[in-house]
């Protein structure tokens, strides 16, 4: 037991360092967003919520935020329309086919994101939809499709395999069994997937900065253009907005409970 004192602190130290690395900069953004003055200064001078008011009052910032919502909602719709049916059907096909399909659906994740961005750039130019916000949303939806499919698959893995048989014994038609037994059990997975896709899409930077123009840029691209001139608390407030969205979403997802089970699962991945 003597040497326990040696290694466990090392582990805890690394973990503490990791926590600082992960959340430190985010905390600084939050602090900066409520400080007075045109420049970010540490320690901060005073306290103000004025920069948040600016988001609503400042036309370009507000427009960029609306564009971001447009893109994110389209991406979620893409996930719901295409990802959800595929996730339902995946467990019903053979394991070899399933592997190939999952691999294919993860194309956007396995390709370097900048290459995906310019691939969309090429195909959208061919299709003549380049610079449309809806097209940008579709592109981001495709890249984030796996995040829609995975939570549903993991929700289905947790289901009791005897349930369809039990429902059939009670006289349920397969349609009824689906609507009243399976769908309610899958809803947490669908909601979790939709929320994750929403957050990943509203904060997307790499694809948006390739596919949007100065007229329809999303909030992350708008902030980026501002960053090149100055690192101001105003931009901090706009960035902090994403922290607020992420926090809200995380609370909802944790309440649904899927993430904890998925991460701390014992089965092989």
């Amino acid at each position: 037991m003597r040497s326990m004192r040696l290694t466990v602190p090392v582990r805890n130290l690394v973990t503490a360092g990791g926590v600082v690395l992960l959340v430190g900069p985010t905390l600084v953004v939050l602090i900066a967003s409520v400080s007075v003055g045109r420049q970010i200064v540490f320690p901060p001078h005073g306290f103000t919520l004025d920069w948040y008011g600016q988001i609503v009052r400042d036309g370009p910032t507000w427009n960029a935020l609306l564009h971001s919502f447009h893109v994110a909602l389209v991406a979620v719709a893409v996930g719901l329309l295409f990802g959800v049916p595929a996730a339902f059907a995946l467990p019903k096909i053979g394991i070899g086919k399933r592997f190939v399909v999952i691999l294919a659906l993860s194309l956007g994740l396995s390709t370097p994101i900048i290459v995906s961005a310019f691939s969309f750039f090429e195909i959208f130019a061919q299709l003549g939809v380049y610079e449309h916000l809806t097209a940008v949303g579709v592109a981001i939806g495709i890249v984030n499709l796996p995040f829609m499919v995975w939570p549903i698959l993991s929700a289905m893995e947790d289901q009791d395999p005897e349930l369809p048989a039990a429902a059939a014994t009670l006289g349920a038609d397969p349609v009824e069994e689906f609507i009243f037994v399976r769908l309610p059990l899958m809803t947490p997975g669908i909601v979790t997937g939709a929320i994750i896709v929403f957050v990943l899409s509203i904060t997307d930077f790499v694809i948006s900065q390739v596919l949007t123009t100065s007229a329809n840029q999303t909030l992350p691209v708008f902030i980026y253009s501002g960053l090149r001139t100055s690192i101001s608390p105003g931009l901090g407030a706009a960035s902090a907005l994403f922290i607020a969205i992420a926090t809200l979403v995380f609370v909802v997802v944790l309440r649904i409970g899927g993430v904890e089970r998925f991460l701390l699962r014992r089965s092989s991945s």
């Binding site: 990791g18 926590v19 992960l22 959340v23 430190g24 900069p25 985010t26 905390l27 600084v28 953004v29 900066a32 970010i40 540490f42 957050v199 990943l200 509203i202 904060t203 997307d204 930077f205 790499v206 992350p220 902030i223 980026y224 960053l227 690192i231 931009l235 901090g236 960035s239 902090a240 994403f242 922290i243 969205i245 992420a246 979403v249 995380f250």
Partner: peptide, 19 residues
């Protein structure tokens, strides 16, 4: 903590480092 950098996105994350 793990999900903070992902859910806040590239811009907020790098903005934090700039600050």
């Amino acid at each position: 903590v793990i999900f903070v950098p992902y859910l806040t996105g590239d811009i907020t994350r790098t903005f934090g480092w700039l600050a």
